[in-house]
Each structure stands twice: as structure tokens, then as C-alpha cells.
Amino acid sequence: MIIASNVSKKFGRLKVLDNISVACSKGECIALIGPNASGKTTLIKTILGMVVQDSGFITFNGNNILHHWQYREQIGYMPQTGRYPDNMTIGHVFNMMKDIRGTRAVLDEDLVNAFQLKALLNKRMRTLSGGTRQKVSASLAFLFDPSVLILDEPTAGLDPVASEILKEKIITEKKKGKLILITSHILSELDDLVTQVIYMQEGKLCFHKSIEELRTDTGEEKLNRAIAKIMSKV
């Protein structure tokens, strides 16, 4: 579904992405793991077209994303920190997104209901806590029933109840055969979610393995232990 070939990106002298090639297909739930500043967010941003790569190309369903901005209709993106214009209300933000995406028959309002955002529709974004903003971002990402979900640190800032709701939602979407990309530092959370792991370090792709492979390779059952073993080896 998403194929990146030899993608490189430099910010000034710093090489953030170094010749990265990955292929992600439908029905997978991929964890993007790596230390801070390893290029995870940049990779996500190049897939979304926010950062333009210096060389290489990315295709979405066979179309080069540089020339087909419409592909983003099929992506739901949840940013690391969601900030919205101060004086918009939650209702405004939802309405605007609905306007942008066009009227659709099916709106997936599971998360909106689960997070009880309907009661807060008239609240200004400025008055919201970080956690509530994350809830808004999450609900927006899932709202249009996209076939690809890209979640950047989805549970950071969410309370345990909310992050459990979000995890349940991710699992149900995974079962529907969607492609899900998650970055997170809380590996224990990813255990029951992901099917594949992409490990990045200093802008390079170290490996892209399925979780079973990783388990047999390292002999560890838990993802955080397996990754710790690999990190100490590298």
C-alpha cells in the first residue's frame, strides 16, 4: 500500500533519513520504534507529504505522492501534539474537518462517543487540557474511516482509561484490515497491538520484521525485552 524507496532527507548537515526503503501493506499494524531523534517522525511526515524528501520516492497505491495530493483522503493522522486555533470550539474543528473531507455517509464516531466529546462541543480549544486535545486529535484521525491510520505517540498524555479505549479502537480497526502505523516509546503498550516492527536508528532503517520473527530471533516473549536486547547489541 505504501512503498518508500531509497528515501533520504537532510536538515542542513544532519542526515535525518538515510536511504530508507520500506513497504507497508494492508492489514498490518506496524510499530515504528527507535531512540529519540532517530527519524521516526520525519519518516511519518514524508509519508504525509509534510516534509519533501531530497531523493527517493514514496508511492501510495502505486501513485507517487508528490503529484497526487488526493491520497491523503485515505489517511487518518494523529499528531504528537495537537494544537488548534485558540478561539475555535471543538465543534468548529469537527465541522471544519467534515467540510474539508466533504460530506460522507459513514462517520465513525465511536471515539467521539467513547471520549464523551459531544458534551464539550462548545469548549474553546484554548481552555482544553493537553489530554483532551489528544482525544480530539484521536477522534479526528478515526472519524472518516480511513484505510490507513498514522498515529504519532498516540497515548502520550492520555489517562489510563482513555488510552485503553484508544487501544481497543486500534485493535478493532486492525481487524477490519486497515494499515496502521504507530510510533511509541511505551513498548509494553504495543505488545498486543502490532504485527510488525520497524526499528530505526540515526536515520537508518535497522530492520523490518514481523513480531514472531523478532521473538524467535531474540528468544524474548515481550517486545520491550526483545528491543532492549537488540539495542544493547547494536
Binding site: 504525509l48 507529504g49 509534510m50 495530493w69 488526493q70 491520497y71 491523503r72 483522503e73 489517511i75 493522522y77 499528531p79 501534539t81 495537537g82 494544537r83 488548534y84 486555533p85 474537518m97 474539508i100 473531507r101 486529535s137 479526528l140
Partner: peptide, 12 residues
């Protein structure tokens, strides 16, 4: 951040 969110939507 809001501009980033808009860029991730199907908009030019």
C-alpha cells in the same frame, strides 16, 4: 501545528 494538521488532510 494546525497548519501541519491541514497539510495532512486532502488539501493542496
Amino acid at each position: 501545528e494546525f497548519i501541519e494538521l491541514l497539510v495532512s488532510q486532502p488539501l493542496k
